[in-house]
Write a protein that binds this DNA or RNA. Structure first.
Lengths: 124, 124
DNA sequence: TTTTTAGTACTAATTAATTAGTATGTCAAG
DNA sequence: CTTGACATACTAATTAATTAGTACTAAAAA
């Protein structure tokens, strides 16, 4: 059975990336990184992380005074869901047109292709 | 120079797909197709197509009483922009992790790979 | 000619996503 | 003990996306 749409909004994704990278993070951890990228309030980050928890992307437990957030699911699963959603939405579910585009736009060249050929060989 | 972010919202994309398919379409054409998929008002479709025109995705000219809308840019260019945006947002711009995911999740198999190998050979 | 139909223009309500303010509590430093 | 730093909870404003209503116009049908 096909798993339920698993898709993060852009800002949610930005935060999840940081949490995945670190394994676990507090609001402050995330806030400090985001602040270097753009103007943002501490409470904004807090709200977003609470939303991510509500939606089931993050789990929290108290560490000292603050909450420590961890991913509730492996990154690969969530990213996989996003790829699936993208392919469904843009290409009605078929991968091939995506690959054709990648090749034609030169995002995918001989070298990349070699890597992936090896990957498929390994995984079969 | 990297072209500006070219990205359609889900509903915009749904409409653009229909216009691309037909080459040109009136509000009514699109409305009738969408109505079979879900409950939607004629004026909703009209508003969306007007927005798409404002954003530069569609051009219109009058045909009899109604406007006939045509794509302002080739589909490949717009879809290419969406792929680029997705890869930037999800994979910080590198294609490889996308391919790795596709292979591991079995969305991409030996057969797909053969096709694309041939494509790359042709395009080089 | 009157009425109906099909279309547009303009306006606005609703929902989701994003952002952030205010009140409050607690711990630690002075 | 009081003050400041830091955290959460709760509330709310803003913006973008989506949806649709109402008024009006022109053509077609009766």
């Amino acid at each position: 059975m096909r798993p339920k749409h698993n898709t993060l909004t852009p800002q949610e994704l930005e935060i999840m990336k940081l949490v995945w990278q670190r394994g676990a993070a507090t609001v402050r951890d995330v806030y400090e990184v985001l602040l270097q990228r753009r103007k943002i309030a501490y409470t904004t980050v807090m709200t977003m992380m609470k939303i991510l928890e509500t939606k089931g992307y993050l789990k929290k437990r108290r560490q000292d005074r603050a909450f420590l957030y961890r991913p509730a699911h492996p990154k690969s699963q969530i990213i996989g869901g996003m790829i699936r959603e993208f392919i469904d939405r843009v290409f009605n579910g078929s991968v091939e047109p995506l690959l054709v585009h990648l090749v034609k736009s030169r995002h995918l060249n001989e070298k990349d292709l070699q890597k992936i050929v090896r990957l498929v060989e390994e995984s079969e």
